[in-house]
Computed example of a mutant assay.
Amino acid sequence: MNRTHLVLLLSVIGLTGCARRAANTNTADAAVHPPAPSVSDRGNAARPAPDDTEQALAALNAAPIYFPLDSSVLPSEATDELARIAQALRQRSLAKVTVAGHTCELGTTEYNIALGQRRAASVRAYLVNLGVEPARISVISYGEERPADANAPEKNRRAEFSFRLAEQARAGEL
């Protein structure tokens, strides 16, 4: 657990003690402000049900972002897709994404790994600029090692997305 999460947790615990209501609340107030979940309910509320997990991940799908030869500059046609991804991530606070950078077979292995890394990093930087928390975006480069189509090098110059929920990442499920 990093320092930010610890500070947030302590703040929530401190505010929870201050937010207790008097025992005599009227029914109109209870309808507007439902009671806080009990301690036994809180554990279940933090974990989405399996169907919720599948729905959350199904909503997070994305087409690859294709790059020109020897470039890590985001193409202008990618901005709409990245804006959609950023909005979906902001709406799903438990979701995390890995951006994988890929290249075609031209160039050395070392160069292609570095180019794939730059491609993934440029996508990450754009998503962060759109308001996605940096800690929720990881990057990896496969260089030329995982071609999408061996006969179409332009399809290999890409960044791909894989989404998971934070709980799945901790549990090693995805």
Rank of each mutant, 00 (worst) to 15 (best):
residue 22 A to F: 10
residue 23 A to W: 00
residue 24 N to P: 15
residue 24 N to T: 06
residue 25 T to I: 12
residue 25 T to L: 14
residue 25 T to V: 13
residue 26 N to A: 11
residue 26 N to S: 09
residue 26 N to F: 14
residue 26 N to D: 14
residue 27 T to R: 14
residue 27 T to M: 14
residue 28 A to I: 14
residue 29 D to P: 09
residue 29 D to R: 12
residue 29 D to W: 15
residue 31 A to C: 04
residue 31 A to F: 09
residue 31 A to G: 08
residue 33 H to M: 12
residue 33 H to S: 10
residue 33 H to I: 11
residue 34 P to H: 02
residue 34 P to E: 02
residue 34 P to L: 00
residue 35 P to M: 01
residue 36 A to R: 01
residue 38 S to P: 08
residue 38 S to F: 00
residue 38 S to A: 02
residue 39 V to H: 15
residue 40 S to H: 03
residue 40 S to E: 10
residue 41 D to Y: 07
residue 41 D to W: 02
residue 41 D to L: 10
residue 41 D to S: 06
residue 42 R to G: 04
residue 42 R to V: 05
residue 42 R to D: 04
residue 43 G to P: 04
residue 45 A to P: 00
residue 46 A to W: 00
residue 46 A to P: 02
residue 47 R to N: 08
residue 47 R to Y: 07
residue 48 P to T: 00
residue 48 P to W: 07
residue 48 P to E: 05
residue 48 P to D: 02
residue 50 P to E: 02
residue 50 P to M: 12
residue 50 P to C: 13
residue 51 D to N: 12
residue 51 D to C: 11
residue 53 T to V: 13
residue 53 T to Y: 02
residue 53 T to H: 07
residue 54 E to C: 05
residue 54 E to W: 10
residue 54 E to L: 10
residue 55 Q to Y: 11
residue 56 A to G: 10
residue 56 A to D: 13
residue 56 A to T: 12
residue 57 L to P: 09
residue 57 L to M: 11
residue 58 A to K: 14
residue 58 A to I: 07
residue 58 A to R: 15
residue 58 A to C: 11
residue 59 A to C: 10
residue 59 A to E: 13
residue 59 A to M: 11
residue 60 L to Q: 01
residue 60 L to E: 10
residue 61 N to H: 14
residue 61 N to D: 14
residue 62 A to Y: 00
residue 62 A to T: 01
residue 62 A to F: 01
residue 63 A to T: 12
residue 64 P to W: 07
residue 64 P to M: 07
residue 64 P to A: 11
residue 64 P to Q: 08
residue 65 I to L: 12
residue 65 I to C: 03
residue 65 I to A: 08
residue 66 Y to S: 10
residue 67 F to H: 06
residue 68 P to W: 04
residue 68 P to F: 05
residue 69 L to E: 05
residue 69 L to W: 05
residue 70 D to Q: 08
residue 70 D to C: 06
residue 71 S to T: 02
residue 71 S to C: 00
residue 71 S to L: 03
residue 71 S to F: 01
residue 72 S to R: 06
residue 72 S to G: 11
residue 72 S to P: 05
residue 72 S to T: 10
residue 72 S to K: 02
residue 73 V to N: 10
residue 74 L to R: 01
residue 75 P to C: 05
residue 75 P to D: 07
residue 75 P to T: 00
residue 75 P to I: 02
residue 76 S to W: 01
residue 76 S to G: 04
residue 76 S to K: 09
residue 77 E to W: 03
residue 78 A to V: 04
residue 78 A to Q: 03
residue 80 D to G: 09
residue 80 D to N: 10
residue 80 D to C: 03
residue 81 E to S: 13
residue 82 L to I: 04
residue 82 L to E: 03
residue 82 L to K: 01
residue 83 A to Q: 13
residue 83 A to C: 06
residue 83 A to L: 06
residue 84 R to D: 11
residue 84 R to H: 05
residue 84 R to G: 03
residue 85 I to F: 09
residue 85 I to M: 03
residue 85 I to Q: 03
residue 85 I to L: 03
